[in-house]
């Protein structure tokens, strides 16, 4: 897709802002539906999607709702109650707690789907390229970690099957133990193999240049400034008394990263081109963020609270329409090319 990774990140941030600035279940539900539609659009036809996603979504909803009903006993609409002499479980179970838990579940589904989409549209390498040069080893370790997840999932499946063919049925928690040990050991073995392969391909070849003394002092100096600034902020009532010191410390760290980055002798294979589509995606993302953080008409419905007595949530047509901007990439790109299986 001809969209810059930064544009995808802007899109992700706008989605996260929406999901974290409102508790209105109707708007969150709308966002979830938009994101699921988005994921259906980008998922190759050969991959299982709906079944897995629906199962996951349903289990998140049930879990967060039930958990909240157990934890929160507030609210006036009592659905049922258990005798109070039952430890932990006794007491009222309310509709308000159910709605609150349900909303939590919807937010989690939205966030999960956002990251799933990002994972599908942006390659691991493109994401890692955004990490500054000074953190090159961190960047590659992140790469490994990200490629490790699908590999571990495959391995987990293989081990589960391997245990089943030895007569192991997963009925009790204890039965899962034989799966964990080979998974951990296999994971470590695989990590060693990747590390070995990376070393053989020249990773972490250090330059012979010595680190100058002033560069060595930047890190401790920056940290001292931040720490002192923080202490000042906490101990004095004067506005911004320590803020300047924290800012100075952060600046020192930035200088350090810039200098260290220059020292890393490495090049990048692809420089992503910025496209007009990327500009539009960023603009719409900014619009969406502003709409949810600035008080525009209809903003009052965003702060929905089911406690103490549940009421029907309101709905802002303006905010509802603006959430549709999350579909901007679909409208601008038209179609998506799937990788062959």
């Amino acid at each position: 897709m001809n969209v810059h990774t930064y544009a995808w990140l802007a899109w992700l941030i706008s989605g996260l802002v929406v999901l974290t600035t409102t508790r209105n279940p109707l708007i969150i539900l709308l966002v979830d539906l938009i994101l699921i539609l988005f994921q259906v659009w980008i998922t190759p036809p050969s991959k299982k999607f709906m079944g897995t996603t629906l199962r996951f979504g349903l289990s998140v909803l049930v879990l967060s709702t039930v958990l909240n009903m157990f934890i929160s006993r507030f609210g006036q609409t009592i659905l049922f109650n258990l005798p109070t002499n039952i430890p932990l479980l006794g007491g009222n179970y309310t509709l308000e707690a159910l709605i609150y838990g349900l909303t939590n579940g919807l937010i989690l589904i939205g966030m999960f789907t956002l990251f799933m989409i990002l994972n599908q549209v942006v390659s691991v390498h493109a994401l890692v390229r955004l990490i500054p040069q000074a953190f090159h080893p961190v960047a590659v370790v992140t790469t490994i970690a990200l490629t490790f997840i699908p590999a571990s999932q495959k391995q987990f499946q293989a081990i589960r099957e391997a245990q089943a063919i030895r007569g192991q049925q997963l009925k009790k928690l204890r039965d899962w133990l034989p799966l964990i040990i080979p998974l951990l050991i296999g994971g470590l073995e695989r990590a060693m193999q990747i590390a070995e392969a990376m070393t053989a391909r020249g990773f972490t070849a250090q330059s012979d240049r010595k680190i100058p003394w002033f560069e060595k002092t930047l890190l401790p100096l920056g940290l001292i400034f931040i720490l002192l600034g923080w202490i000042l902020e906490l101990s004095t009532q004067l506005p911004l008394s320590g803020g300047w010191m924290i800012l100075a410390g952060l600046l020192l760290l930035l200088v350090l990263f810039f200098i260290s980055g220059k020292r890393v002798n490495k090049s990048t294979y692809v420089q992503e081109a910025w496209s007009q589509i990327s500009t539009w995606i960023c603009l719409f993302a900014l619009l969406l963020i502003l709409a949810f953080v600035i008080k525009i008409p209809g903003h009052l419905v965003l702060a929905y609270e089911p406690y103490p007595l549940v009421q029907l949530p309101g709905f802002s047509i303006l905010h509802g329409l603006l959430t549709l901007t999350l579909l901007t990439p679909i409208f601008l790109l038209g179609e998506v090319k799937h990788d062959q299986d």
């Binding site: 390659s123 691991v124 790469t143 490994i144 490629t147 391909r201 990773f203 490495k266």
Partner: peptide, 16 residues
Amino acid sequence: FVVDIVEDEIAFSMEQ
């Protein structure tokens, strides 16, 4: 393999 796309994988050692 360190990265997920063929051309990125081939370019990895050259980047280093």
